[in-house]
Amino acid sequence: MDEQTLARWRLLLGRYSEQHLQHMANLSAAQQQQMQTLDYLYNREYQRRGVVQGQGQDSGGASLDPSQLSALDWLTKSKRLFPKSTFEQMQTTALSRYGMTELMNSPKMLDQLSPSPQIAQALLGMRGRMSNEMRLAVKRLIERVVEEILQRLKPNFRQQFSGRRNRFRRSHVKQASNFDWRATIARNLKHYQQDSQQLVIHEPVFYSRVQNHLPWQVILCVDQSGSMFSSVMYAAICASILAALPAVSVKLVLFDTSVVDLSEHAHDPVEVLMTAQLGGGTNIAQALQYCQSLIETPNRTVLALISDFEEGGSVPLFLRTIQSLASQRVTLLGLAALDEQAQPVYSIDMAQRLADLGMHVAALTPEHFAKWLAEVMQ
C-alpha cells in the first residue's frame, strides 16, 4: 500500500495499531492532530468494554494521550480538522453514544457545536439534567437547527398553497413556477430568427393562480414515542408554516401513552421541541379519539397521523376510530415515520389495514408532504 493509504488505516485503527504501522505510516502534522482528536473520542469505546489503557506510543515520540485535550479544545480542533459532515457525526456520537457530559459544562461549549437534527436530539435527551443557563444555550442551538430547515421548507409550502394554476387566465406576476412555456413559444414564434436559428422571447407568458379561500382545518397527530424525534421536529416545523397561511386552522397533537395538545405553540416549533417528551409507549387510538373531538367541519378537515403505526394499545379501537373518522368524510392521511437517513420505518401490515379503511398512506419527505397536503385540500 502507498503511504497515504497506510496513514488512513492508522487513523482508522487507532492507537493500538501504532506498533504495527509506526514504521510504515508516517503521519503528517495535521494527521497527528486528527489522530489526537479521534483518540479523545473513540478510546471511550475501550473504556466501555473494560479495557485498561496505557499511555500509548507514537512514531514521533510525543504522546498522543487524549488527556492532553480539554473538551473545548477537542471541539475546536475537530471542527477545524474534519469536514462538516464528519464533525457532525463525531459530536453526535460523543453525546448520544458516549454521554460526554463535559460538552455540557458551559454555554460557550454548546455554542461550538455544529447544529444538526442529530445533535438537537441528543441535547434534548439531556435537558432534564441542565441548569437554566444551559437550557437557554440548548434552545439557541435548536433555533439554529429549526431555522435551517425552515428556510428550506417554507418556499415549497408557500408555492404549493399559493393556489392551483389557472390555464385559462394570464398573470402579470412573473414567477418561475407560473411560467407557461407552451403559450410563450406560440406567442413569440413571429420573433424566430432564421439566420441564428433562435427564438427570441419578447413576451413571456405566465399562468395566474386560483386562490382557495374556504377555510381548512389541519390536525397533525404526531407519535412522540421511541425514536420519533425527526418526525416530531419536521411536523412542528410544518405546523408553524401552515399556521402562517391564510384560511388554515392548525392543531398540533403529540402522543405516546398520553396526549399533549400543543396547538397554542403551533407557530413556534422551537417551543414544541423544548416541550416534547420523547419516549414511552404508543396509544394511537387514544390520540385519534382526542383529535376527533377537535374537528369542527369534517369535510373540510385533514387529519394527518404521523407514526410508525405500531399500536401499543387496542388495535380494534384504533381501527374503529379510523373507520368512524372516514365515515364522517374527514380526509385521513397516514405519514409513515422516517429514520435519520429518510428511510421509512413503519408497520406495513397495519398501513395496509388503514388504507383499506380509507386512509391515504405514504412515506414522504417533508418537501413532498407539502405537495400532497395541498393536493388533498384543493
Rank of each mutant, 00 (worst) to 15 (best):
D2A: 14
Q4T: 12
Q4M: 10
W9Q: 09
W9D: 09
L11D: 06
G14H: 03
R15V: 13
R15K: 11
Q19V: 12
H20F: 14
Q22V: 08
S28L: 08
S28Q: 10
A30P: 07
Q33L: 07
Q33E: 09
L41K: 07
N43W: 08
R44K: 13
Y46H: 07
Q47N: 03
R48G: 11
G50R: 06
G50D: 07
Q53L: 12
Q55H: 06
Q57P: 07
Q57D: 08
D65N: 09
S70M: 03
S70L: 06
A71K: 02
T76M: 04
L81R: 06
F82V: 09
K84E: 15
F87N: 05
Q89L: 14
Q89E: 15
L95D: 01
L95C: 09
L95E: 04
G99D: 09
M100S: 12
T101A: 11
L103T: 03
P107R: 08
K108V: 15
L110H: 05
Q112N: 10
P117N: 07
L123T: 00
L123W: 02
G125L: 06
M134F: 07
L136I: 12
R140H: 12
R140K: 13
R144H: 12
V145S: 00
E148I: 15
I149F: 11
L153Q: 05
K154P: 04
P155W: 14
N156P: 07
F157C: 02
Q159T: 15
R165T: 15
N166M: 07
N166T: 07
R167I: 13
R170M: 15
S171M: 13
H172R: 14
V173C: 11
K174D: 08
Q175D: 08
W181E: 12
A183E: 09
N188E: 06
Q194Y: 10
Q194V: 13
S196T: 08
H202S: 13
H202A: 13
P204N: 09
R209M: 09
V210P: 05
Q211S: 14
Q217K: 04
Q217W: 00
I219D: 00
C221V: 11
Q224M: 13
S227R: 12
S227M: 13
A236P: 01
I237T: 05
C238G: 06
C238P: 03
A239R: 00
I241D: 00
L242E: 01
A247V: 02
A247P: 00
S249T: 00
K251R: 11
L254M: 08
S258E: 09
V260I: 12
L262K: 02
L262N: 04
L262T: 01
L262A: 03
S263Q: 03
E264M: 11
A266C: 04
E271F: 02
L278H: 07
G281C: 03
N283M: 04
I284Y: 06
A287S: 04
L288N: 02
C291R: 01
Q292M: 12
L294S: 03
T297H: 14
T301K: 00
L305P: 01
I306N: 02
G313F: 01
L317E: 08
R320L: 15
Q323R: 15
Q328E: 14
R329W: 11
V330P: 00
L332N: 01
L332H: 05
G334V: 05
L335D: 02
D339Q: 13
D339H: 11
E340P: 10
A342Y: 15
P344T: 14
Y346F: 14
S347F: 11
L354C: 07
L357K: 10
G358H: 10
M359L: 14
M359Y: 11
L364D: 04
A370H: 03
W372A: 10
L373V: 02
